[in-house]
């Protein structure tokens, strides 16, 4: 499901890629963005939840308080920032959230589980395009304690449930160098109450599939073998995750939201600056990062396609 070019959050600000904590403070603090693909992506999300609920939603009992806080926070944010589409009424502990885009409403009594049929994060996630994760901030580190994850880029929510922040990132090449992952964890642990930070993460996906969980890798992973110099512009998509970290003020836990965008290379190369930056980034990408990001199998075809397009446009680097 490719996004319109003008809504695509192109991630590269420099010509070479290196892991960095490229986070920026968001003012006002926000976790959610509504795009033109809202209706289609919500429909896809709900189909995935219906068909594969255990794959797409997991939680530990300890996360329940944070889930309530996250749901209320998300509904309040939507009502405030997208007031033409959403509203939230509060009377004592009774809440009524209305989604005018879907013609739906959610009524609940805050922190009363008998007032809802699903867990709070599972309800909230059905109204937003983002995947939602709760990271519990315990005195011995950050732990993934709940998540609604429909659009993962080759990872499994079930596997990482209950894991520490550092262990979750074990597969990232070079993550231990210079104590990088510890620094990132320290950065997150110092995020202040109600503060939100944003960073962009990127990879490549073959086809315009948002849902590429590890659980179905045997199906979609094969597509990487089908990329040729003829179809690379159509098949290969730049995948960008806009990741936001928000400190929940009551529980002190972290709400981590991931909004995934896809753009085909054929659309991307219409922008000359993006074309040049993608080319230099891919060209200088180390082999282990290319492997991790799923590019290694068709890196040659990708580079040849970008070089050919640069030449055709008469662009120099």
């Amino acid at each position: 499901m490719s996004v319109k070019v003008e809504q695509f959050p192109f991630p590269f600000t420099e010509d070479r890629y290196a892991y960095s904590n490229n986070s920026s403070l968001l003012k006002p603090a926000r976790s959610i963005t509504i795009t033109d693909h809202y209706l289609k992506e919500i429909q896809l999300k709900r189909e995935l939840l219906q068909a594969n609920h255990k794959r797409c939603f997991r939680s530990l009992p300890i996360s329940l308080e944070s889930q309530w806080e996250a749901m209320r926070r998300i509904f309040a944010e939507l009502a405030q920032s997208e007031s033409e589409h959403f509203s939230l009424e509060k009377r004592g502990n009774e809440y009524r959230f209305q989604n005018h885009l879907l013609g739906e409403e959610e009524r609940f009594t805050y922190r009363d589980s008998s007032s809802i049929e699903l867990q709070p994060l599972d309800i909230a996630g059905r109204h937003v395009q983002e995947d939602l994760i709760i990271m519990g901030d315990r005195h011995d580190g950050l732990f993934l304690e709940a998540g609604q994850l429909c659009f993962p880029s080759n990872w499994s929510l079930t596997f990482v449930l209950g894991m520490e922040f550092k262990s979750i990132h074990t597969p990232v090449p070079g993550i231990d160098q210079n104590d990088f992952i510890s620094k990132v964890e320290r950065f997150i642990s110092r995020i202040r109450l109600n503060e939100a930070w944003e960073r962009k993460n990127w990879s490549m996906t073959i086809s315009n599939m948002l849902d590429t969980p590890l659980e179905t890798y045997a199906n979609w992973g094969k597509l990487r073998l089908k990329v040729t110099d003829k179809n690379v512009g159509e098949m290969v998509h730049l995948r960008v995750e806009v990741q936001r970290l928000l400190r929940l003020p009551m529980t002190n836990d972290i709400l981590f939201s991931i909004h995934t965008y896809l753009l085909s290379l054929n659309d991307l190369i219409q922008n000359d600056l993006w074309l040049k930056r993608l080319y230099t980034t891919i060209q200088f990408l180390s082999d282990d990062i290319a492997e991790y990001k799923g590019i290694a199998l068709y890196k040659n075809e990708l580079i040849q396609f970008l070089e050919k397009t640069l030449n055709e446009k008469g662009l120099s680097l």
Binding site: G162, S167, P171
Partner: peptide
């Protein structure tokens, strides 16, 4: 098997 280990599982 990979070297990605879950202390939870």
């Amino acid at each position: 098997p990979s070297n990605h280990y879950s202390t939870y599982h």
